[in-house]
Structures are given as structure tokens and as C-alpha cells.
């Protein structure tokens, strides 16, 4: 038996690697073996300073942020690998052709715009851009006809455009609304919301705010969106979004804002959601607020009678 065997046994004991019988035998031996006891005490001192299972406890926000970054990376990954595909395509088809033939090819150009897929940009947004503003960052070859040289390309283009104007300007509103739906940093989306929140009376902006409330990954951004929307709760479409948020949003802060906005309304759909939340909401404050709102409405109805 190696001279280190007693220590290994101590460590196996501490890491729960002994069978129940071995464990019982170890503990029995411990009572009459001072050397083993000293060895155990020395190892236990280490465990007191740094117990088993005491790995780093990372903040919840870090996990949430990591999850959000992963979702964004997954979305990016599922878009076609444009440059790789184009490179491969060019190696396969273009290499045998003389360069002038390539130059003569007719190019049909489209845009990759927005998040989640291939589509043309909203024409109003496209009108903000000039061809010389665009820089091609990726390219997909959709089709090539070697016999005629006809080629169809799809470009991923970025652009830097400076817009000067007021928040009332349609172009400014369009750009900010597009930023809300884009795959941008949460800080940028919050900035866009800051600017847009006073323009929520515009149907286009309202629609973007509702989309943000329903789909944005970041609770801070959704909170800002609901703050902008709650003054417009007289609008049924907005109320629908608020009811959805109250029932489904994972963030209690967002749900608190939703109930604050909804509790003054008496339409059947809202009453039904309040009723449900007064029974099923996990957050005590929100559940209480829903119950109090319903109670207030019943009292008011009783007084009227």
C-alpha cells in the first residue's frame, strides 16, 4: 500500500467516494486512530476555508445577458453564410470564366435588411439611403447561368447616414422605429425608445412600441416600451398588448407597469385578465393589485345600484 493511501482515503471520504460500508469502517477507525484524525482535520481545515460546492456564484444578470447574447448569435448563425457561400460559388463557377465575362454579367441586387430573414427594406427607410452610402459586407449568389452570364446576387449592405431633423420628422421616426426592431445593442434600443416615447401617438411608432413590448429580449427595453405605452391604454390595441404583457411577461417590473395601466379599465377582456391574475399571478404585489382593482370595481358597481 502506498504511503499516501491514508490521505487518499481521507479525501475519498470527504468527496463522498466511499461506499456506505467503507464509510462506516473509516469512521470507526477514526475513533481509535489519532494519526488519521489529524490527517482528516488538516484536510477539513482546507474545506472550511473553501467548502465543496463553493464555486463562484455569478450574478443572475450575467446569465440573462449571456442568454440574450446566445439568442442573438443563434439568429445570426441561421442566416445564410453569405461570404462563405459566395466564395465557394466563385471558386466553382467564376474561375473558368474570363474576367470580362464576369464583368459583363448582369447583377440583380437585393438587400438583406432587418432581423430574421431576407426581405426588402421598407421603402420609406430605403429612401433615406443613397447608393454611395452603402458598403457591401456580405454577398450571396442566388443564381448563375453559365451560358448567358446572367447572375443574381443578394447583398448584405451597411450604411452610415446622418439624419438631422426633429422627432416629428417622418425620416427620423422611421429610422428610430427600425432601430427598435433591429438586432442592435439593448443600450441603443433604449436610446431609441427614449426619443420615441413622446411620439407614441403616431400609429407607426405605437406599432413599434407594441412589437418591442412583445418581442424584445431585454426586460429593461420592454419596461421602457411599456412606460411609453401605458398613457395610451385607452387604445384597444395598446390594451391588448398590456394584457399580454401582464399575463406572459417574465419580468415582474413589466407586469407591475401593465397592471398599473390596466386597473382603471372595465372592458370585459381586461376584467377577465384581472380576474385571472388575482388568482394565478405569482407576484404577491401584482396579485394584490389585481384583487384590489376588481374589488374597487365591484364596490363602484354596488354604489351605482
Amino acid at each position: 500500500m502506498s504511503s499516501d493511501a491514508p490521505r487518499q482515503r481521507v479525501l475519498r471520504y470527504l468527496y463522498g467516494d466511499l461506499s456506505p460500508e467503507e464509510r462506516a469502517a473509516f469512521e470507526l477507525q477514526l475513533e481509535g486512530d489519532p494519526a488519521l484524525k489529524t490527517l482528516l482535520a488538516a484536510e477539513q481545515r482546507f474545506d472550511q476555508l473553501h467548502p465543496v460546492g463553493s464555486g463562484p456564484q455569478l450574478p443572475e444578470a450575467l446569465l440573462q445577458e449571456s442568454r440574450m447574447m446566445l439568442r442573438a448569435a443563434l439568429r445570426r448563425q441561421d442566416r445564410p453564410g453569405l461570404l462563405e457561400r459566395a466564395g465557394e460559388w466563385f471558386r466553382r463557377f467564376m474561375a473558368p470564366l474570363a474576367w470580362p465575362a464576369g464583368v459583363a454579367a448582369a447583377l440583380l441586387v437585393g438587400f438583406l435588411w432587418g432581423r430574421g430573414g431576407w426581405q426588402s427594406p421598407p421603402s420609406s427607410l430605403a429612401s433615406l439611403l443613397k447608393p454611395e452610402d452603402l458598403e457591401v459586407v456580405a454577398l450571396r449568389v442566388d443564381h448563375f447561368e453559365p451560358a448567358t452570364g446572367q447572375v443574381s446576387l443578394v447583398l448584405d449592405a451597411v450604411s452610415q447616414v446622418q439624419l438631422d431633423g426633429t422627432l416629428e420628422d417622418r425620416a427620423v421616426q422611421t429610422a428610430l422605429a427600425a432601430a427598435l426592431r433591429g438586432d442592435l445593442e439593448p443600450g441603443t434600443r433604449l436610446q431609441a425608445l427614449d426619443l420615441l416615447q413622446h411620439q407614441a401617438h403616431s400609429a407607426r411608432i405605437r406599432e413599434s412600441l407594441i412589437h418591442t413590448l412583445a418581442h424584445d429580449d431585454n426586460p429593461g427595453v420592454r419596461l421602457k416600451a411599456i412606460e411609453a405605452l401605458k398613457d395610451l391604454a385607452k387604445n384597444e390595441e395598446v390594451r391588448g398588448a398590456l394584457r399580454e404583457a401582464l399575463q406572459r411577461d417574465l419580468n415582474p417590473g413589466v407586469r407591475v407597469e401593465a397592471i398599473e395601466a390596466l386597473k382603471h379599465f372595465n372592458d370585459p377582456a381586461t376584467l377577465q385578465v384581472l380576474e385571472q391574475q388575482s388568482r394565478e399571478e405569482v407576484n404577491t404585489y401584482i396579485r394584490g393589485e389585481a384583487a384590489r382593482a376588481l374589488e374597487g370595481k365591484r364596490r363602484a358597481a354596488g354604489e351605482q345600484l
Partner: peptide, 28 residues
């Protein structure tokens, strides 16, 4: 299990930025 993956990544790299990189690379 992703909380444990992030914690493991932090344990192996020693800082949050690298841990987030490992987390993302691993899950992708």
C-alpha cells in the same frame, strides 16, 4: 443546465468576459 455551464466557464477562465465567450461558443 446553462447556469452551471456559465459558472464552469468562469471557473476555468477566471473572468466573466471570457466565461461568456466560452458559454456562447459551447452552446453554439
Amino acid at each position: 443546465c446553462d447556469r452551471r455551464i456559465l459558472s464552469l466557464a468562469y471557473d476555468m477562465t477566471g473572468n466573466t468576459e471570457d466565461a461568456q465567450d466560452v458559454y456562447q461558443e459551447a452552446l453554439l
